[in-house]
Design a protein around this nucleic acid. Sequence first.
DNA 1: CCAGATGACTTGAAGCGTCAACTAATGCCG
DNA 2: CGGCATTAGTTGACGCTTCAAGTCATCTGG
Lengths: 156, 156
Amino acid sequence: MEDGVRWLDQDELATWMALAALMFKLPGVLDYQLQRDSGLTHFEYLVLAGLSESPGRSRRMSDLAGFANGSLSRLSHVVKRLEQRGFVERRPADDDGRITVATITDAGYEVLVAAAPGHVATVREYVIDTLTPDQLSQLKVIAEQVLAKIDPSKPC
Amino acid sequence: MEDGVRWLDQDELATWMALAALMFKLPGVLDYQLQRDSGLTHFEYLVLAGLSESPGRSRRMSDLAGFANGSLSRLSHVVKRLEQRGFVERRPADDDGRITVATITDAGYEVLVAAAPGHVATVREYVIDTLTPDQLSQLKVIAEQVLAKIDPSKPC
DNA sequence: CCAGATGACTTGAAGCGTCAACTAATGCCG
DNA sequence: CGGCATTAGTTGACGCTTCAAGTCATCTGG
């Protein structure tokens, strides 16, 4: 192992392991709470949330995929299931037949509204309220810098 | 929505969205690189790494699961596949027949050693070298605080 | 000393995500 | 205009994770 690789020193490694552990565990915590209390995955929640806050409670698929940080394929599968459950509807856009517009139904909106408080409470409990305001702004900058490296577009 | 819920203010929400996006995308980046260059998932890499740095290149399953941040069930499936590929071996512990001890083989070690430089380079590229030393220590504290909230045990 | 409880995994089925292939609509360029 | 490339989304198969159930081994109280 004596080649030109810049290995991580102890601090870097510790930081990385902590971040990696976070990446693995936080999704589980969020999914668990949402699933248990509302029958939604975090991704499904984001999809419904993304629709609910859009004009006309509608949004085209690729947009929504970007918002929810997932692939178009994944979104397509998820929206199909949400449609079967009666939480969203799909139809092609009037002006461009390639585009599919998803709309959240009243039923979907109700589920979302019912799920939101518990979800926000969980986010607060595990992240927001665990950190000081200073740490929150540090975290924001850090996360955005790393994100910018991963995905040079998308300012958020 | 005028109940007693403490919603997130704009800054809190932006921070959370950035962290959430990070949680979704970083695993993908790591998995992609490892898969492409070494045929390993990040989880498999962690399993092999966890074994390689343990005394006797061996470790009991539950230990390893904790180290790799996964469930025991998940680990069991993964180790079975790694065993079929010839990268690890399993046998019951001498003193307690309930315990399974996994050991990394020479072949597994070679794969790990071959994978490590590329993986470390990726971690550097997207995380470590993107942040200042100050940010790194901030991040370490932040991640550890959140982790402590999620999993009150496990000091790391 | 043995019967039930607990601990440490393993297994199988079900569901979700990814990848590659496919369909359909639109844009572009000669 | 007409054909080919591009864009947007869908689909199916496969692999992986989770969840619940099952298997042994070990402890423990009577």
